Amino acid sequence: MKITSQFDSGNIEVISATDPADIRLAIRKDNQSDFYQWFHFRLNTPHIEAHTIKITNVNGSAYPDGWKDYQAVASYDRENWFRVDTEYNGKELVITHYPEAESIYFAYFAPYSYEQHLDLLQQAHLHDRCQLVELGDTLDGRDMSLLVIGEPAEGKRNIWITARQHPGETMAEWFVEGLLDRLLDDEDAVARSLLDEAVFYVVPNMNPDGSVRGHLRTNAIGVNLNREWQTPSMEKSPEVYLVREKMMQVGVDMYLDVHGDENIPYNFLAGSEGVPCFDERMSALEQSFRAALLTASPEFQNEHGYEVDAPGKANLTVASNWVAEQFNCLAFTLEMPFKDNDKLPDELYGWSDVRSMKFGRDSLTAILAVAGSLR
Rank of each mutant, 00 (worst) to 15 (best):
F82C: 13
L194I: 02
V258E: 03
V275R: 06
H47F: 14
R157D: 09
G260T: 10
E154S: 09
E197S: 14
I95Y: 06
G10D: 01
R129C: 09
A292G: 08
G10Q: 01
E335L: 00
S320N: 09
H40A: 02
D279Q: 05
S103K: 12
F41S: 00
V94T: 10
P204R: 03
S288G: 11
K236W: 06
N302L: 15
A366M: 03
A284L: 12
M282Q: 15
V212P: 02
G90T: 03
K54L: 08
K91W: 14
G178P: 01
V275C: 07
D309V: 11
I55A: 00
T45L: 02
F327S: 04
R290E: 08
G274H: 02
G136S: 10
P46Q: 00
V250M: 04
L183Y: 01
E197W: 10
L285Y: 04
V133F: 15
A284G: 10
V370W: 04
E280K: 01
T218A: 09
M357P: 07
A163H: 05
H47T: 09
F268Q: 00
S373C: 05
A50N: 13
R217M: 09
L126S: 14
D279I: 01
T56S: 09
E100I: 08
I104Y: 10
Q165T: 09
E79A: 15
A17W: 03
F327C: 05
